[in-house]
Design a protein around this nucleic acid. Structure first.
Lengths: 194, 194, 194, 194
DNA sequence: TATGAATGAGGTTTCATTCAT
DNA sequence: CATGAATGAAACCTCATTCAT
């Protein structure tokens, strides 16, 4: 007799949104954004084709929502690291282990964002976001390497970031043929953290 | 009006093919394969839409032809390196400088292939090709690091490859904000080549 | 929480129905029937999309209800005119002033119906209604002009009707640029009513 | 062996464009712009759905092209009238007969434009065009009535225009029930042209 | 060899309508 | 009485591909 309660509706909404985002993330990551159709997303999410447009203005808006989620997830990595009182080496170890863990447990997000880096149009939308992320990571790395006592902390930070990207990129393309775990241990050893 | 000789025809063919490949490479690299239309390629190449189908069976066939070109170009890097008699450090320096030069003068090829790495379907087509390349690069690196006398040449080779990929990936997304030249010098220094 | 009385319910019903009709009329008149969505109507009426279907079988049924309202409103013009004892010139003046007043205070209705005249499908539904209206207006005009003593009252009635339509049509398309009030005075003068 | 000649292509293009415009005009006029789908236009024009987009950027662009055609056609009415040396009464007669002829032989154009007058969005696009047309018609009428010697030529011109619109509007909604020919004769008589 | 008009499948998006609550 | 999440048909539009010349 009466309409669904607000709470009920909110639950339903969140379920549908989550299903759509999850489906889209999977497909975007595996087939690429442009090659993924709304139909495919709807089918994967087991909802109707039109439902996406109840929650997102367009396919692009859905992409942006997913990227924001990725950014939020990424933020969760840092808090334990940003504590200044911790031993910098301990922080570095946390970053390495945390990043390997994050990337392996969020491969889809990583794949998606990495793939967008190569699309000019996407870069225009995300460019500033990526530049800011990059800058803050480099800055953090620089500080740590300085505290630890390295000579050229800025370049060290760049090397550090490049290693991450290169390792994960190779991991994505070579999959089980890439010695990911070995590389994690190598990094720990490289920075004298074992 | 006079019938063209076979030679003349061949020249025309090669010009058209080259124009199509060049146009497609540019557009694929900048906008992505899926987001690039045959119309756009034809317009960029200043030929008709239909002509593409005289030389390539499909859009995909055009992509494959470009990838093969990239592979051939990549091969040209190595010959001077593969000479066993050369000093391994000299070879390493040649690889570093050569790769930086190759990537910066062939950004489009690099971008295109890197972007395809994130598309499962493309990977299925190119997977073996990439794996072989990777394996042979790793193998070459391993040999060099061993000759030079490093401790764990295999892992060193993986690090070496990862650094390249990471540096170029960051270069692509950050563009002029990334200190590419500094990173080249850093690599030379890192391997004690200056 | 307490159950509403039948009377209360009836009031609510009428309010909702009125709100829906009013919203629909506005939107239909300004954007056209086909270009107006149920969503837009519901939003404008500040009720839910589903509610419309409690009171009207379909979007078309809502349109028909509005047209009927317009017809009823139109009827209200005539009673004071149909009194045979009144001076025919007085009646003519009443018709002119009344019509100008009605159209300017019910622009939406006028616009909606005028716009439907150009849609074959709508005409099929409203055709007879319009023909009857037209016929009765012409008949009324004919009688008046005859009583007043004009020569060719039938054609005069057609001219009279055409003037109205033409004036209001221009008023709708030219808006404030059209000298509507001047035209009213002109008509009064034309039929020697001032 | 060789591509179609430019001339051949131009002929084909013009045929397709004409077929599309004709089909669209018919459907727009009979069912209304919004209620007419591209599919329906393509079917009526006996071409494929996609072909419209070879020649027009969008459904709206097609509409605009048709309106421009209508404007061009409308222009053809005037030349014989604009000659200052002709007797003004003769000119008035030409305008009346010409307009009746034009509207009856171009009902579709007239219907389409008249129907768009009631759509706010369309008016925004065509507003200036209509205002200019209206202004120039009124101006022309004013001059003629002045030359002929009428008292209030400006208002006469407005009445003249309103009569046209009203007559044709009634003709459109009442069709064969409206005495169109009688109205033409009436107008000729009204302005003392017989 | 070269063209570009034409096709139609399939993409993104809108929306009237249904229905569980 | 009232809600709005969900549906799916159908709208507008794009594009790889074909083909007559």
């Amino acid at each position: 007799m009466s309409p669904k309660t607000k709470k009920q509706n909110e639950v339903i909404r969140q379920q549908s949104i989550a299903a759509l985002k999850q489906a889209a993330l999977n497909l975007f990551a595996h087939k690429g954004y442009s090659s993924t159709s709304i139909s495919a997303i709807a089918k994967e999410a087991k909802v109707s084709k039109g439902l996406m447009y109840n929650y997102f203005d367009s396919k692009q808006a859905l992409l942006l929502a997913i990227i924001e989620d990725a950014a939020d997830l990424g933020q969760e990595l840092l808090p334990n690291v940003l504590d200044d009182t911790t031993d910098p080496k301990e922080q570095l170890r946390a970053i390495i282990n945390g990043t390997f863990l994050w990337v392996t447990s969020n491969v889809e997000y990583y794949k998606l964002i990495a793939s967008l880096v190569f699309q000019e149009e996407a870069l225009e939308v995300m460019g500033d976001f990526i530049k800011m992320k990059a800058a803050s990571h480099i800055h953090l790395g620089e500080q740590l390497f300085q505290k630890i006592g390295y000579d050229n902390p800025r370049i060290m930070a760049f090397e550090f970031g490049a290693l991450f990207d290169g390792i994960f990129m190779a991991h994505l393309s070579l999959k089980e043929f890439y010695p990911l775990e070995e590389m994690r241990l190598f990094m720990l050893k490289k920075y004298d953290l074992v």
